[in-house]
Amino acid sequence: MALPLVIFTHGPSWFGLEARHIAGRGHLSAEDQDVIAFSRLFCMHSEPSGRLEYLRLRTSTAEWRLGIQGKIELIELNADVIFPLPDPLYKQRRFLPLKALGFHHQQQHQQQLIALLDAEQLTQLALDQRQISR
């Protein structure tokens, strides 16, 4: 059993969202205003301006655009490399949408950790910060 994921980078880290919540992807123009940069949600600051792409998220509460300044890939992870966040980490996580961990094989047999996010929680975070409306 495999889970389709859209993964993206933020700094040195990889994050992932279930592909079923991603309704689209595109490039942003300078005029686009209704996009929430991932950096704003993750570390409460804006990334330096640069070329951004967006992922259109569709959840039970809202449809909105998440700005990404990094690589974006579509992958599948087998169930045996996906793990719930260990209890101590779940309790102490600073970023509430962080839900699980996955390991993605990259070149030269290196494994890359993917921080798997709950799209509903990420949407809630954006709503709480009044970055988007329902």
Binding site: F42, L89, Q92, R93, L98, L113, A115
Partner: peptide, 24 residues
């Protein structure tokens, strides 16, 4: 190998895979 987990306090180094179980 210890894998860094983003969004954690600085007292967390990361996670390790111990024979198929993930430990902080």
């Amino acid at each position: 190998p210890v894998y860094f987990v983003p969004g954690m306090p600085s007292t967390i180094e990361g996670v390790i895979n111990v024979r198929g179980d993930i430990e902080s």
